[in-house]
């Protein structure tokens, strides 16, 4: 007969293991670990909202009208664009959200065959560069060059891409 004193130790070890597992389980389940996956959700919400707002700004209120978005871009109207976009973005049933934005317009410079951009809305002072901002875009087709933008090639109908950076301050 071998010495079976070790059996008790084994049971103790197993019990200790179970207790440790249980402790770890309780710790993990009570403190919510902010995993990398979770950060994607606010991004998804912001991106969806931003796309919606751009799409709605591009939908004229009555048939045959030119959409607000096209007017803002073709007249290079910074405050108009910003107010319309943020007004729509921050609207809630109760209270208001705190979103901030900047916007660029990307166009093709035909003679040099380069893709260039110019700022439509400058970021405000909440922009530090460390925000987890999302980028939403919308195509806008213009009859001619937007007014007040230098460095573009001769006026022609063109398709430009409006890019909006959106972040929560």
């Amino acid at each position: 007969m071998v010495n079976d004193r070790g059996q008790l130790y084994t049971m103790e070890g197993v019990a200790a293991g179970v207790i440790m597992l249980l402790t770890a389980y309780i710790v993990v389940s009570t403190t919510s670990v902010y995993t990398a996956g979770d950060t994607h959700i606010p991004d998804m919400q912001l991106e969806q909202l931003g796309s919606d707002v751009l799409a709605m700004m591009d939908t004229p209120d009555t048939k045959g009208e030119v959409s607000d978005l096209e007017i803002f871009v073709s007249t290079n109207n910074e405050t108009g664009f910003k107010n319309a976009f943020l007004g729509y973005c921050n609207a809630k049933a109760i209270g208001a959200d705190n979103l901030h934005m900047s916007a660029n317009v990307t166009y093709r410079h035909a003679s040099s065959n380069e893709i260039r951009d110019y700022p439509l809305v400058e970021p405000d002072n909440t922009w530090t560069g460390r925000e987890s901002a999302v980028r939403v875009t919308r195509w806008v087709e213009l009859e001619g060059n937007p007014s007040g933008v230098s460095g573009m090639d001769p006026s022609r109908p063109r398709a430009v891409l409006v890019e909006v950076l959106l972040w929560r301050a």
């Binding site: 919400q45 969806q48 909202l49 919606d52 707002v53 799409a55 709605m56 939908t59 209120d61 729509y88 973005c89 609207a91 809630k92 959200d97």
Partner: peptide
């Protein structure tokens, strides 16, 4: 869980 949609 939350989502906000801009609509007309």
């Amino acid at each position: 869980g939350y989502i906000r949609r801009a609509v007309k």
